[in-house]
Amino acid sequence: MSARYWPALLRSASLIGFLLLWQGLAWWLQDPLLPSPWVVLTQFWWHLTEGALLYHLGVTLARVVVIFFIAMLLGTLIGVLMGRFRLVDLVLDGLLVLGLNIPALVVIILCYLWLGLTDWAAIAAVVINKVPTVVVTVREGARAIDRSLLQVAQVFKVPPMRRFFHVYLPQLYPYLMASARSGMALIWKIVLVVELLGRSNGMGFQLGTFFQFFDITSILAYTLAFIIIVLCVEGLLLRPLERYLNRWRP
């Protein structure tokens, strides 16, 4: 086997091991509370082809995407300003600590109470939860900006847009990638809670329904849909993007 397949093999080995353990445990226990992976898979197929999985997944995905871009843009903007200007840092630092530590559930409930049970309330709640973590990471990046490269741009009168995209932003890429990764994970998790509490569609709403009927197989089938999406985002978007952004590293 050639060396380039080794990482993929190792990556999947832990997943396969987990599935085998699960299957073994399900056989051994024979309990309706732990359906076997195979049962979950057939149920997943049913939800996919006959049920409404695709619709609810689509609704949730749309929310996640909108939230992701709003939170990244807002967080990057604030983070850059805080890293660059000491005054902004001093003014916003207290709010940042507050934002980082306020429980997600509190924000969600308040957003629903103040904005009503709407999509915008749901989106606002998750954005408020996510932005502070982006800010913290990007602020570190903005503090670590290499002044000597900015001086090059200054002396040679590089126009502002080009200066931003070719001199400034590339120095932030590692920090942006890190917050994009942790962002995806966090947003997924919170969006589901938001949907459970106040929306009538989406994966969170569906999971809530299954919970009421003790439909464990369907809960696991929906979870499988998540795992597939997350792996696709990581493998087809984030990792290739990261490889592209790092192509200059020796």
Binding site: V152, V155, F156, H166, V167, W248
Partner: peptide, 20 residues
């Protein structure tokens, strides 16, 4: 300006560094 260190943008190719 030529600095003590080359001060090239490491993420730009040689050509793009000059085009910058």
């Amino acid at each position: 300006f030529m600095f003590q260190e080359a001060r090239l943008m490491p993420w730009l190719t040689v050509l793009d560094n000059v085009l910058l």
